[in-house]
Design a protein around this nucleic acid. Sequence first.
RNA 1: GGUGACAUGGCCGAGAGGCUAGGCACGGGUCUGCAACACCCUUUACGGGGGUUCGAAUCCCUCUGUCACCUCCA
Length: 508
Amino acid sequence: MNSLQLYNTLTRTKAIFEPLNPPFVGMYLCGPTVYGYAHLGHARPAISFDVLFRYLKHQGYQVRYVRNITDVGHLADEVNDRGEDKLIRQAKLEQLEPMEVAQRFTDAYHIDMDALEVLRPSIEPRATGHIPEQIRLIQEILANGFAYEAHGSVYFNVRKYNESYPYGTLSGRKIEDLMEGYRTLEGQDEKQSPLDFALWKKATPEHLMQWDSPWGRGYPGWHIECTAMSTRYLGTTFDIHCGGLDLMFPHHEAEIAQANAAFHPCEGTHRNEARTWLHCNLITINGQKMGKSLNNFITLQQLFTGNHPALERAYAPMVVRFFILQSHYRSTLDFSNDALTAAGKAYRKLSDLLYSLQQLVLYANDVEDDGNPVWEIPRNLEKNCLDSINDDLNTAKVIAHLFGVSTWFNTLKQDVKLLQSLPGQVLKKMVNVYETWFQEILGLQLIEPPSKEILAGVMELVISFRQQAKLAKDYASADKIREELQLLNITLKDSREGTYWSYEPKQE
RNA sequence: GGUGACAUGGCCGAGAGGCUAGGCACGGGUCUGCAACACCCUUUACGGGGGUUCGAAUCCCUCUGUCACCUCCA
């Protein structure tokens, strides 16, 4: 497979990816609503589409990757809760400004994503920073006749829209089917139809976040922000829109409707906002979706620290990343301690493999391609990885290919003669291919070198061995330890209370 | 009720008409002062029942089970 194929939710088929304006690629991912800490579920789209971002860049595209921050909360519970905003609810609970809540969880999100080696997007727009854009978009939709105003709120007219464009193409829904589901609901007096959704909501005086608009003071609806921000930075039709499966309906469906109604009102053919729509599946826990509303989620911080009753131990961020990449993004992925532990061991194996390769290549000879069939190994690895990622981002298969060379290499490592007989450039090629796929594209990093805590533990151990030598009157060994450490700029200081150590780099 | 998925060996998970995916775990062995690592061997699966085919885990029908969406959710 020579070129990237992606499964487009719109067409339900895989198709070769062709950018609208090569070498430029625009991609958008619906980012987090920042009213709580990110959980394992948030990691999935961030990581899956991070790999896409990395791969597109690797292929030489100039990618503008927009991932928004939703800091005007969506409505918490429209029917029962008088439409209280999630962020506002959280702010009231904690006696904070809504923006304080948003800031705190945005920062936390960044910390978690950085730990997972998720690259920062090209643009990370905030919904509250794009209120004028959202208002303008609503005005367009109103002017084109696809929305109506009611008591200071504005609603999208789904039935009207459906006369010009098929509504529900992304999620495979028909308006009649949807109506059946709504029959039981009541209230919603302002809406002409229960299918309609708010573009702008009138704010009550107590509402903490509100803005002036042509329709009075209020706040934007639940779907308009993404249409406003994606089209602002990527154009009215762009390449790739991604998100979690649970956003497909109604969020993405609404986005498409809004974009068509605002930008392509007379065309009859709908542009769908983005040409390719990608959806990653959900992470389940005991076969059930992990979600805030179900209250069965595990935050990333809990995962990293092991501080959760469902966790048998802590899992490093790279283990979490590896765990997610070991399945295909469109499959459900079931969380369990066993699965995470297995992923951790597998990740360590690959990490060790790359580390040894990097060490060994330092001693490689300069023999170039000499027709030795061993050259096929790195070449095949590269080709296989490429074929797999091109097949709708099959990272699971890429990982399998990386494992494919482990036996060959580990055997080689233990056989000096065989190693010396090898053209050295093969190893260099191997390192190059491995680094490209493991680090650059999958975004997996090597297991971290020893930290400060480890050094402290090791020093304690060394000092205790020296103490034993002194007690045994083996002063030669004791002095040797002190002298050798001094060569590493570590000074041992004996005192009545015990031995201390300090590190002082020598001034050259 | 409507819509859409999915069921793969002890576990996790790719694959999608013929060719061992892979990882983890288990058992046996080599190496090793012990351990770890590594290597070798072993274990061969596609929910049930029909059908299409020379051949099906892969296509079709059917049954069973699980899940998701239809309301905020990554």
